[in-house]
C-alpha cells in the first residue's frame, strides 16, 4: 500500500466522486477491494434483538420479584414520610391549606418547575412553592441562592427575607444570604423590591447584564458581562465583596469552618474560587490578601 492518506479517506467514505474514480485505478484499491469482499465472509451473525430481550427478562424474572418486593416496602416508607411531612407543613402553616414542595440539597440541583421554567439551586439553598396556587400565580420562596430561566407567562415572583423579585420571562439569579442580597439579570428585565426598611418600597429595575447588591444595607449597582452565573459552572465569583462574605461562601461550598483575622472582614475582595478544587480555591482567596493558611480536618485558619 502506498498512499496512506488516500486509503484512509477511501475507507472512511470521504473521497469526492472524482477522487474516488482516480483512486479506483490504483493497486491500493484493488487490494483493499479484494480484502473487503473476502472479509464479508466473517460478518457477525445478526442478533435477534427482541428474542434476546425476552431471554434476558426470563433470566431475570426471579431477581426482579425480589427487587419489586423491596421497592414495595420502600414505597410504604416513602408514602409514610410524605404524609408526615405534609401533615407537619399543614400544622406549621395553619393559615394556608396548601401543600408545599421544598427542595434542599447539599449539592447544586437543577429543577424544572411545572411551567417548564428552570431553576438551578446552589448548595445550601431551599426553594418552595405552593402547588395549588401555582396555576394562578407563579410564586416562589427562596432561601439561599438560585438561578432562574423563566418561561414567558404570568408574573413570576421570587420572595426572600431580603426582598422580592418580579419578572415576566427572563433569566436571573437571586442570592439571599445573611446581610447580603444580590440579584443579577442575564436576560430580559426584572424588578427588585427590598425589604430593607430604609429603601422600602423602592423598586429597582434591572436590565440585561445589570446587578444590584445590598451588603449590610449598602446598595451597589454593577454591570455583569457573563451570560450565566459563575457558580453554575463550578466557580464562585466576587466583585468588590467584603471578605467575610467570600469566606461564608467558601464555607458553604466546602463544608468547612474558616477562622480569619477580624481586620480582614471588611476588606473588599475581587476574584473567584473553584468549587471543586479545595487547594486551589484556598490559594485563590488567600494570596490576593497576602494571607497564610493552615488546615486541620474541617477547619481552616487564615493568618497574616
Amino acid at each position: 500500500m502506498k498512499d496512506q492518506e488516500r486509503i484512509l479517506q477511501y475507507l472512511n467514505g470521504s473521497l469526492s466522486a472524482k477522487e474516488k474514480e482516480e483512486f479506483m485505478k490504483t493497486e491500493d484499491y484493488q487490494f483493499i477491494d479484494q480484502v473487503t469482499q473476502s472479509l464479508q465472509a466473517f460478518k457477525a451473525p445478526t442478533l435477534n434483538t427482541e428474542e434476546a430481550l425476552t431471554t434476558l427478562k426470563n433470566r431475570q424474572s426471579k431477581q426482579a420479584k425480589a427487587v419489586e418486593f423491596s421497592l414495595w416496602n420502600n414505597a410504604w416508607k416513602v408514602a409514610a414520610s410524605i404524609v408526615i411531612v405534609a401533615a407537619a407543613l399543614w400544622f406549621l402553616y395553619p393559615k394556608s391549606s396548601t401543600e408545599q414542595f421544598v427542595a434542599s440539597h447539599e449539592q447544586q440541583t437543577e429543577w424544572i418547575l411545572p411551567d417548564a421554567s428552570k431553576v438551578v439551586l446552589n448548595k445550601h439553598s431551599e426553594l418552595s412553592y405552593s402547588e395549588e396556587e401555582w396555576e394562578k400565580s407563579r410564586n416562589l420562596q427562596l432561601t439561599g441562592e438560585a438561578y432562574f430561566e423563566v418561561e414567558k407567562g404570568s408574573q413570576f415572583t421570587v420572595t426572600t427575607t431580603s426582598g422580592i423579585v418580579t419578572v415576566l420571562g427572563t433569566r436571573f439569579t437571586v442570592n439571599s444570604r445573611e446581610n447580603y442580597y444580590e440579584v443579577t439579570c442575564y436576560e430580559g428585565t426584572v424588578a427588585v423590591t427590598t425589604t430593607d426598611p430604609k429603601n422600602k418600597d423602592t423598586k429597582t429595575i434591572l436590565a440585561k447584564g445589570e446587578q444590584v447588591r445590598w451588603v449590610n444595607d449598602r446598595v451597589q449597582r454593577n454591570t455583569v458581562r457573563a451570560v450565566h452565573p459563575s457558580w453554575e459552572s463550578g466557580f464562585s465569583d466576587f466583585e468588590e465583596v467584603p471578605f467575610y462574605f467570600v469566606i461564608k461562601e467558601f464555607e458553604r461550598q466546602y463544608d468547612v469552618t474558616v477562622e480569619y483575622p477580624e481586620s480582614e472582614a471588611e476588606r473588599l475582595f475581587t476574584g473567584s474560587f473553584h468549587n471543586e478544587d479545595f487547594n486551589s480555591a484556598l490559594k485563590a482567596i488567600t494570596i490576593p490578601l497576602s494571607l497564610e493558611f493552615q488546615t486541620k480536618g474541617n477547619s481552616v485558619t487564615l493568618s497574616k
Partner: peptide, 26 residues
C-alpha cells in the same frame, strides 16, 4: 423526603430503572 420529591420531578424519562427506558437501551 424532600430530596426524594426533587428526584421524582427530575427523572421521569431518562431513568434507566424504568423498564421502557431500559428496553429502549437494549
Amino acid at each position: 423526603p424532600k430530596y426524594f420529591i426533587l428526584k421524582m420531578s427530575k427523572e421521569n424519562s431518562d431513568n434507566v430503572c424504568e423498564e421502557k427506558v431500559f428496553d429502549q437501551l437494549f
